[in-house]
Design a binder for these strands. Structure first.
Length: 298
DNA sequence: TTGCAGGGGTCAA
DNA sequence: TTGACCCCTGCA
């Protein structure tokens, strides 16, 4: 039988896709619904149809098995293995972070979360749209934006749209972009497109910088403040020493750890000291835990 | 039915 | 440090 082995994972070719065996710490619901990405549809069979890197795949997890449809060995090896962060040993991360009962509970609750390695450009625009916005609205704006400028992909009798590249956006102007209903963020999107097109902002270069410098560079883009910058760093640039602080993270960190009202800066300092280079993973477990249980929400 | 607060922030004053 | 900001939902 034809198969592929990457780290401990064994991949088998199946009809219209691949089946991964011996995968630990992989829960599709937790991965896609923890707020790190917006371009997925949950299907009736609890699988997730995901648009990323110009392709559409369908992902379903079941214990130590993960089924990915509409793909092959080549794409798995070149794209999805990295995208799904399958080379990382999450048991080690969980062990390091399990220093107290709070973290143990959060980790247990969000078992199988993985931090995706998303495309920096898509992550930049997505999180500009996320500012002072709600998840369904964010997802809708990104979807409309992709419909307007992305390329079409047909899969299972449905049409999907890739996230537009800079080239796809050569004709984009403010009045058009406004129809993606991102409101006051549209002008930031236009400016971000312009800065990347002109090379004033080089996302690949930023990715190679240290976290502090990279954050400073990203904040040059209008609409990108400290929180949005941290999300881009964590979700697309593998800067795991970041701890994006939004209202949820502020509430949960105050309630579970600091036991008092705190400023955003104090929350970040706490995370840096407590979680260090694993801050981003801690953030994901805590964020999912807080939102699902509505912790800290009065 | 209508009106209004507020949301997974950022910016400018 | 504070209010405005698009758009939409939830709730009086």
């Amino acid at each position: 039988m034809d198969y592929l082995k990457l780290s401990n994972i064994v991949a088998e070719e199946i009809e219209d896709g691949i089946l991964l065996k011996n995968v630990s710490d992989f829960n599709a619901k937790h991965i896609f619904e923890c707020g790190q990405c917006f371009r997925w549809d949950k299907e009736e069979d609890d699988s997730y149809t995901v648009i990323a890197f110009g392709k559409v795949i369908n992902v379903k997890s079941n214990g130590n098995e993960v089924r990915i449809l509409n793909t092959d060995f080549k794409d798995f090896k070149e794209i999805w293995f990295e995208y799904l962060d399958l080379g990382r040993d999450y048991s080690r991360i969980k062990e390091v972070l399990s220093t107290d009962d709070t973290m143990k509970s959060a980790i247990k609750y969000g078992e199988g979360i993985r931090i995706l390695k998303q495309d920096p450009w898509e992550t930049l625009i997505s999180f500009i749209i996320s500012a002072n916005n709600r998840i369904p609205m964010i997802a809708r704006s990104i979807s409309l934006f992709s419909q307007m400028y992305g390329q079409t992909i047909n899969y299972n009798d449905k049409v999907y749209y890739t996230f537009p590249t800079i080239k796809d956006l050569s004709e984009a102007d403010l009045s058009d972009i406004k129809s993606c209903k991102a409101g006051f963020r549209c002008k930031y999107i236009i400016k971000a497109i312009e800065m990347v097109r002109k090379g004033e902002i080089n996302l690949e270069k930023i990715k190679s910088m240290k976290t502090i410098e990279a954050e400073k560079e990203l904040k040059k883009i209008p609409g990108v403040g400290i929180k949005v910058a941290n999300c881009i760093l964590l979700f697309s640039m593998q800067k795991y020493d970041t701890y994006p602080v939004d209202v949820w993270m502020k509430r949960i960190t105050e309630e579970l750890f600091l036991k008092r009202k705190s400023k955003t800066g104090e929350i970040s300092d706490f995370a840096q000291k407590r979680f260090g280079d694993f801050s981003g993973f801690a953030q994901e477990y805590l964020f999912y835990y807080a939102r699902e249980l509505k912790i800290g929400k009065s």
